[in-house]
């Protein structure tokens, strides 16, 4: 697709004309979600129980956070394949820091701050590396983050000797996993807050809007006088920073620093963003698409687990869903034009 077409498509999304067919199309995914839930509920009543719904919401909040991180860079026609290994590295790094600080006899507040500081520092370093290589050296995002994927995996497993890092203070887990606000678990609260903040950032600030412009037409963005390179670096730092936050939440859940935590997360996060309707061609998507996609994937795998569908079959279904989801989105776009 040419830049011109893309920018026309983007203009369309910015000022939605609420015709009937467009309303129908934009409702496809939410309707599919409800149908999916009801379908699973027909097989197993437990799917709709309050406990399981809360479970789904909690599960979704992690994936949604990672999908949001991925969406930010995908908006600029980028990728972050290193997201999963970044999560592993942050998990191991913050756990080691906390274990070390606790062992040297600091009080629990200092230990927590040291862990958070180490985690975010590692995440931001990763983002700076990605952003620097992509924006300043002009390396394709796929290669750059594939490189940092390997580097981050190497660092995470070397630091931890490939074993889980013990010694995470209980207070850490109590706050970031066990904690709750008005009965809502911490993971959901954090993701919701980040989601609102990120939405405002993307929709209402110059920085956010410039991401869309860079994604739809990088040349136009440069001609318009945007500091494209600086913005790109900031984008990757933002992505890795969000990944670091997710890593801290996951570390609190497991109670130890896990070198294998990231595993398939990079691709899952991309799948979540893309199924929700984020365009890999750049310039289209947002917090809403990331959350929808994450919700869809989580409900699907939760339902398949509860209805006892074989794990290997689940892989096939997820693969098919990713393709069908993007195909539907493609058809939806064609309708618009």
């Amino acid at each position: 697709m040419s830049d011109l077409e893309l920018s026309v498509a983007a203009k369309d999304t910015e000022r939605p004309k609420l015709t009937l067919s467009r309303r129908l199309w934009s409702a496809v995914l939410p309707v599919a979600l409800v149908m999916l839930l009801l379908g699973f509920a027909a097989v197993d009543r437990g799917v709709l129980s309050p406990a399981n719904l809360l479970n789904i919401a909690q599960q979704t909040s992690y994936l949604a956070l990672f999908a949001m991180a991925q969406t930010v860079v995908i908006l600029t026609r980028g990728f972050d394949l290193a997201l999963g290994p970044t999560v592993s590295m942050v998990s191991v790094g913050s756990a080691l820091m906390m274990a070390g600080a606790a062992a040297s006899g600091h009080d629990s507040g200092t230990v927590l701050l040291a862990g958070l500081g180490a985690g975010f520092a590692l995440g931001i370093a990763c983002g700076l590396f990605n952003g620097g290589v992509i924006a300043l050296l002009g390396v394709n995002p796929f290669v750059a983050t594939l490189g940092s994927y390997n580097i981050a995996i190497g660092i995470a497993t070397t630091l931890s000797s490939g074993r889980p890092v013990q010694g995470v203070p209980p207070l850490f887990s109590q706050i970031f996993y066990g904690g709750s606000l008005f009965g809502v678990p911490a993971a959901i609260v954090i993701t919701a807050a980040i989601g609102v903040g990120l939405h405002l950032l993307l929709a209402r600030t110059v920085f956010g809007r410039s991401l869309y412009l860079i994604g739809t037409n990088p040349r136009a963005a440069a001609v318009a006088g945007l500091p494209v390179r600086r913005i790109l670096v900031a984008t990757y730092v933002l992505c890795s920073g969000l990944a670091a936050l997710g890593a801290i939440m996951l570390t609190a859940r497991t109670g130890s620093g896990e070198p294998n935590l990231g595993g398939a997360l990079s691709l899952q996060a991309i799948a979540g963003a893309v199924v929700g309707g984020t365009s890999l061609a750049g310039g289209r998507g947002g917090v809403g698409t990331a959350v929808l996609g994450a919700l869809f994937i989580t409900i699907l795998s939760n339902g398949m687990n509860l209805t006892r569908i074989d794990g290997y079959v689940q892989m096939v279904v997820l693969g098919a869903i990713v393709i069908i989801g993007v195909l539907l989105d493609r058809l939806r776009q064609e309708r618009r034009q």
Partner: peptide, 13 residues
């Protein structure tokens, strides 16, 4: 995206 999907499906099969 396509090959991401077929990767998961093929490995599953």
């Amino acid at each position: 995206v396509v090959t991401l999907g077929t990767m998961s499906a093929t490995a599953g099969v």
